[in-house]
Computed example of a mutant assay.
Amino acid sequence: MQSPDPVPAWWYRHRRAHGIGSWDEPMHVRLLAERRMPIERSPFRHEGLRPAGLHHYSGITSEHYPAGELIVTVGYPAQRRPHFGADDTALLALLLPALRVAHHAQATAAARLAAAVALLDAGAEALQVVAADGRTLHRNAALGALLASEPERDRLEDAMAHAARGLRALRRPRADASSIAATLHGTPPERAVATTRARYVVRARPAPEAAWGAPGVVLVSVARDAAAPDVAAAARALGLTAREAEVARLLVERLTNAELAGALGISVHTARHHTQRVMQKLGVGSRRELAARLRAT
């Protein structure tokens, strides 16, 4: 703890230097008096201990780890004056082994988490870690760069959330086979997303529980679909203009006219006009026929 008040600053240094794992108020006051630092003049007492209700206090601490130290302090209301003696200090000392084990586990878990984050950040795969309750625990630099370059990042983020929910649903215990089948067919943990710029594949897989320190954590990845056909090039080869080819590519992805308008920044009326013109020029009557015609080219 860093403090301009010399009382806590000296106390923390002294306690660590002498291995004091448990203490009470009389011990604290006596040691400070020996250093000519009366605790009655300390802001730490009047602004920290007393407002927190820590009268006649005692405490224990874990060993000092790189991540810090864990301190448990117990205080009593001013009207209660428990007897502090050897038995009380010994009783508190009995809790020290358990406290140190817990703190060591906490420090070890923090180190594992830091290593997992560093590993994600060092890789080229665009990844996001999602907690069981849907919170984003980490998003690596590769994913940040991908989303920053994608004008329709909201569509990608929606697909990522959907994939994470789907995987959690698949892993959740179900009561009967019919509900399992419904989950398998209704919420797949992988999906394709097409934007005006590219086509992506979003996948979800379980994250190592030991690394993230919690169950149900999901690792979501986003990658450009290398297998996606160049529909726009095929449309150009069939005589469409560059704008019509872009419209055709989006129609192949089954976008509605409203979605098409949003993707291209045009009105729904204009999107409908583009759709009709593309289908007329290619001689097709539906988006399904349009997709078949362009992918066969």
Rank of each mutant, 00 (worst) to 15 (best):
S3K: 07
P4M: 06
P6G: 06
V7N: 04
P8L: 03
R15A: 14
R16V: 14
R16N: 11
E25N: 02
L32T: 06
E34L: 13
M37S: 05
M37I: 00
E40Y: 00
S42L: 03
H46M: 13
E47I: 01
E47P: 02
L49V: 06
A52P: 00
G53H: 03
E63F: 10
Y65A: 12
A67V: 11
A67M: 09
T73C: 02
V74Y: 12
Y76D: 11
P77K: 06
R81H: 12
A86Q: 09
L94Y: 14
L94A: 15
L95Y: 13
L96S: 10
P97G: 08
P97M: 04
A98D: 13
A98T: 13
R100W: 10
V101H: 15
V101E: 12
A102I: 08
H103I: 07
H103D: 15
A105P: 00
A105C: 08
A109E: 13
R112W: 13
R112L: 14
A114Y: 00
A114E: 09
A118C: 09
L120Y: 01
A126F: 03
A126E: 02
V130A: 14
A131I: 06
D133H: 05
L137I: 13
H138Y: 10
H138L: 09
R139V: 15
N140E: 01
A141H: 07
L146C: 08
A148L: 10
S149D: 15
S149L: 12
E150S: 04
E152C: 04
R153M: 06
D154H: 12
L156A: 09
E157V: 09
D158Y: 11
A159S: 02
M160W: 02
A163C: 14
R165I: 10
R165H: 14
L167D: 08
L170H: 15
R172T: 15
P173L: 04
A175Y: 12
L184G: 05
L184F: 06
H185T: 13
G186C: 05
T187W: 01
P188A: 10
P188Q: 11
A192H: 11
T196N: 09
R197L: 04
V201N: 07
R205T: 14
A207M: 07
A210R: 14
P215Y: 05
L219D: 01
V220G: 09
S221K: 02
D225L: 05
A227N: 06
A235V: 07
L238Y: 02
L240Q: 03
T241C: 00
T241L: 02
A248M: 07
E253A: 15
A258N: 15
L260P: 00
A261T: 00
G265L: 00
I266W: 01
V268K: 09
T270Q: 00
H273G: 03
R277D: 08
M279Y: 00
K281A: 12
K281F: 03
G283V: 03
G283P: 02
G285S: 09
G285I: 04
R288P: 02
R288A: 12
L290Q: 08
L294G: 08
